Amino acid sequence: MLRRRMLIMLGVVLIVVLALGGYKAFSIYQQIQQFSAPKPPINVAVAVVESRAWQNRLPAIGSLKALQGVNLSLEVAGTVKALQFESGQKVKLGQPLLQLDSDVEKGLLGTAEADLGLAQVDYARGSKLVGDAAISKGEFDKLAATQKKAAATVAQLNASLAKKRILAPFSGTIGIRQVDVGDYLASGTVIATLQDLSSLYADFYVPEQMLPKLSIGQQVQVSVAAFPDESFNASISAINPKVEDATRNVLVRATLPNPDSKLLPGMFANLQVILGQDTQELVVPESTITYTLYGNSVFVITPKKDANGQPEKNAKGEPLLAVERRFVETGERRGGQVIIRKGLKVGEQVVTGGQLKLDNGTPVAISADSAAPVEQRDQPKVD
């Protein structure tokens, strides 16, 4: 009886083991079938490689400078008696800006002017007397010298009084004032900055080999970080007649109007010097390029082929597509587009996004609205 019971238990265990083994084998079979089944194609957006006119430009970086700009400072020391401007105010040429205490100089000037008046009277009287031989020529010369000395003293005191005040040297916008009424200022103290913002200079460097392509009046496009969507037109106004020894670069200056005073001196500027005639270049969106240390590449749409090298088709008779990684030589980038020097042909389709999901031979399907030419899609226009 016991033996029979043990045989029954062994039979049940064997059945359970066989059932589990069969289930496991079926699961493995399903997984093998899943991995061996062809992968569904990945939907991708593409762009068409085009040949288009590309405007030749020389990129450069520089900084903006005011047409005229100075730090207003004093030549002499003194106590501030009056401030005649507000921070950020627009001032005109010759407008009074600051007055130092000048009571002592004014008092001395009054004395000097009185001495000058007396010397002039004596000189006028002496000129008559010397003609009548009433005084000697030597005495008349002393009267003339006294008059000149008195006039020089008056001129000296007037010059000292002029140094006690600051007048606007040109029309412009004055900056934030750095002093207050009652401050004692040493000579050379800066009270504010004055900038003429009606026009600006954009100074930048170019390599010496580019000199033959530059000329006075050549157009330059300027952009700044403060206004990323705007471009400002400038023209080359000066080229330095000396090449920098350390860098072998040449300093170039462009002038640009600034009627709205939007641009300020000291701004960092990106510049594009317009070099001349357009050239035909192969262009693709920059998003198609995969940049790596071992080279730049794109994924090109190609027909999927079987083991015999024949194009494969789906059940509807439509050709199946795959991607091919192709290394390319890129050129200038501008406005979201990049020039392809080598590696692509006109009319080929390249993947514009999702490259991390792709590898050589990955099956793909083109999205219905993604195969339009570059200019028909939302790509920035190349000037």
Rank of each mutant, 00 (worst) to 15 (best):
A25C: 08
A82E: 06
N296E: 15
Q120L: 12
A226M: 11
T302D: 08
Q68N: 15
S87M: 03
L256R: 00
P38Y: 13
G11I: 04
R377H: 06
A186L: 09
L108H: 06
G172T: 05
Y29H: 15
T173G: 05
M267C: 10
K137E: 13
A269E: 11
L129F: 15
S199Y: 00
V351C: 04
A37T: 14
M267I: 04
V179W: 00
Y184T: 12
K65F: 15
A246V: 03
Q209D: 07
A322Y: 04
K24E: 14
F85P: 01
S63I: 02
S370M: 03
Q195L: 06
K106D: 06
V374E: 03
V252M: 02
F170D: 04
K65Q: 13
P285T: 07
L251H: 01
V346P: 03
N258Y: 02
K316R: 11
K262L: 12
A254Y: 10
D245K: 05
E332I: 09
S231R: 14
Q30P: 07
D378N: 14
V273N: 01
S27G: 13
Q219H: 09
L83A: 00
V76P: 01
Q272I: 02
A234F: 09
Q221K: 07
T288V: 14
V351M: 07
P363C: 11
V206T: 02
Q218V: 04
P373S: 14
D278C: 00
A307N: 04
L7V: 11
G317A: 12
P257R: 05
N233F: 06
R3L: 13
V350D: 06
P373K: 13
K305S: 02
I239H: 08
V91Y: 01
P228V: 15
Q178N: 10
